[in-house]
């Protein structure tokens, strides 16, 4: 595969969130508005690139017995640097994100890609893979945040977009979008849409569905 495909593949068809089910926590929890979501995406991408690069460079020397803990240490150090940087240059956002910056350590995308990809590929491919997966994550996170902020507050990046009823407009905010569970619905519907367009992603049914007609004849 060429480097370009490593970057484009995870955007939709191998998306870390909707296909690999990785890195959900932050995608759900910090997607209330665009600004924190964007900062979160940038943070995750930087940590992901760093960890994939380091693990790939060290892939021939990492001893198997302590491989995981070394990877986690590398990731945690990168997260500390990101956390301190945010505290210094974007303290407001850092406060909004609160513990979720630290939780990038346990964002499964990062350890997942290190284990599944960087351990077997060279640095260049690993960075490409990190960028691809990072952007795939960012698309979903920022997309969900855009919908939630637009419908929940009528704004994008805190700039008014839809005229609110309180200000004499026509748009009544949907308070459900301000609550975290709404992200579940949005991602659920998104997966539905993607799988309807790309049927090969759909899961194989474990059991044939019970049709209403069947139930009538059997009773």
């Amino acid at each position: 595969m060429s480097l370009v495909r490593y970057v484009t593949e995870p955007l939709v068809s191998e998306n870390p969130i909707t296909v690999q089910i990785l890195g959900l926590c932050s995608a759900l929890a910090v997607s209330r508005s665009m600004e924190p979501a964007l900062i979160m995406a940038v943070s995750v991408i930087s940590v992901l690139v760093f960890s994939n690069l380091m693990v790939s460079l060290l892939r021939h020397v990492l001893p198997n017995s302590i491989r995981l803990i070394l990877e986690v240490t590398l990731i945690a150090s990168a997260v500390i640097v990101v956390d301190e940087t945010l505290k210094a240059y974007a303290p407001g956002i850092s406060e909004v994100l609160s513990v979720f910056v630290g939780l990038i350590i346990t964002n499964c995308i990062i350890l997942g890609r290190a284990e599944a990809f960087a351990l077997r590929h060279g640095p260049l491919e690993s960075v490409a893979d990190a960028l691809g997966n990072g952007f795939g994550y960012a698309i979903i996170l920022i997309g969900v945040a855009a919908i939630r902020e637009l419908l929940g507050a009528g704004t994008l990046f805190d700039h008014p977009v839809l005229p609110l009823v309180e200000a004499g407009g026509w748009f009544r905010t949907n308070h459900m979008m301000l609550y975290a569970p709404s992200a579940f619905f949005l991602i659920g519907f998104l997966i539905w849409a993607i799988r309807s367009l790309l049927p090969r992603q759909a899961e194989v049914r474990e059991y044939p569905p019970v049709r209403a007609g069947y139930r009538e004849t059997s009773s």
Partner: peptide, 26 residues
């Protein structure tokens, strides 16, 4: 992935190396 011999000494060496690198960075 490393499949070769893994002596305790080398494991320690890599661990210390990574630890030093991370602490320096932080």
């Amino acid at each position: 992935m490393n499949t070769g011999e893994e002596s305790a000494g080398r494991t320690m060496l890599v661990a210390v190396g990574v630890a030093l690198f991370c602490s320096a960075m932080v």
